[in-house]
C-alpha cells in the first residue's frame, strides 16, 4: 500500500507529516526510521504488507522568492 506524506526542512530538522502522524529528525536516516515506526503504529492496516511512503516536498516551505525559479525540490520514496 502507498502512504502519502509531505516532507520539509524547517532550518533545523526534517519534518514529515500527514493526517495521521508528524515526525521530526535532523537526518534523513533518522527520519526514515521514525516514519517506519509511525506508520506501523498509526496505520494498523499496513501491518504485514509491503508499504511505500511517498513524501512530497512541501513547496510552501521554500522561500517565496526562490519558488519562481524552481517549483520542485524533491519527492522521496521509501519502501519497507
Amino acid at each position: 500500500m502507498v502512504i502519502y506524506a509531505s516532507i520539509r526542512h524547517d532550518g533545523k530538522n526534517w519534518v514529515v507529516e500527514n493526517d495521521h502522524f508528524r515526525v521530526e529528525a535532523s537526518t534523513l536516516d533518522e527520519i526514515d526510521e521514525k516514519v517506519r515506526d509511525a506508520v506501523r503504529e498509526k496505520t494498523p492496516e499496513a501491518r504485514g504488507q509491503k508499504v511505500q511512503v511517498y513524501m512530497a516536498y512541501d513547496n510552501y516551505a521554500i522561500p517565496q522568492w526562490i519558488r519562481q525559479y524552481s517549483s520542485h525540490y524533491f519527492d522521496r520514496v521509501i519502501e519497507f
Binding site: D10, G11, D58, Y60, A61, I62, P63, Q64, I66
Partner: peptide, 12 residues
Amino acid sequence: EKKEISGTGSLT
C-alpha cells in the same frame, strides 16, 4: 500555517 510560511519563506 502554511500560508504564513509561504508569505515570507521560512528559511533564509
